[in-house]
Amino acid sequence: MNIRKNSFVLLVTYLVVMLFPNLFFTVSKSNLLLFITTSIVGTAGIFCMFYLNQKFPFANHIDSKKSSLTSVLLLGILGTILAFLVQKVTMLAEIYFLHQPAVSENTSQIMTIIAHYPYYLIYVIVAAPVMEEFIFRKVFFGNLSTFINPMGAALFSSILFSIAHADGHYLTYACLGLVLSFVYYKAHNIKAPIITHILMNLLVVALQLK
């Protein structure tokens, strides 16, 4: 089935990109080589995923409708605004009701890495968002919704998205996952949540550097 091939090749690519730098680090023990490798492999992962998504296509019920480039761009930008607002609200809820720290440990670690290895920005702002959207939105939301209710698929993919970030701010990441799923659902094109995710990461990094 095309859905199996599409999901399988995207998942394998993602796992290789995630695991290879860490396996390489166990041999090299060099932070410099680790982040260089992560950036290079992550960039290669972008092209692989776009290529494999075309070579082994599967148009789930979200992809089956077509949208104009203008709609994709507009929804991607509007999604960024919505994602930023949702992040602020959920972070406040976590701070005041769940007693989570105000600063994201994940973001702090990323900014520390960027301060020492600026080229890692390529991975953070472009590579990671592209690959995460193919996996969590295309595979675990879009493709999975072929078999289960779309809302259930959106919740499942968003929970996985939250767990994958291993940050402690699970509510925030899960809600961001739902926003990205909504953008994908409305745009009928995976490029829309990719745009949202890239712009969101760019905004977060820019605000931290300010």
Rank of each mutant, 00 (worst) to 15 (best):
I3G: 07
R4C: 07
R4H: 14
F8I: 13
V12P: 12
V12L: 15
V12G: 11
V12F: 11
L15P: 01
V17W: 00
L23K: 02
T26F: 11
N31H: 12
I36L: 15
I46W: 01
C48H: 01
P57A: 05
A59W: 00
H61E: 10
D63N: 14
S64R: 14
S68M: 09
L74D: 03
L74Y: 12
G79E: 09
I81E: 03
V86T: 12
T90N: 08
E94P: 11
S104P: 11
S104W: 01
N106V: 13
M111A: 10
M111T: 08
I114T: 10
A115E: 15
Y119R: 03
L121M: 15
Y123R: 10
I125R: 04
A127M: 07
A127H: 09
P129K: 10
E133R: 09
I135W: 03
R137L: 06
G142V: 09
N143P: 04
L144D: 01
F147A: 10
S158E: 02
I163R: 04
Y170M: 12
Y170T: 12
Y173I: 01
A174M: 15
G177P: 12
L180R: 00
K186A: 07
K186H: 06
A192T: 06
I194Q: 01
T196D: 00
H197Q: 05
H197I: 08
M200S: 14
N201L: 06
L207H: 02
L207W: 03
L209Q: 15
L209R: 09
K210E: 08
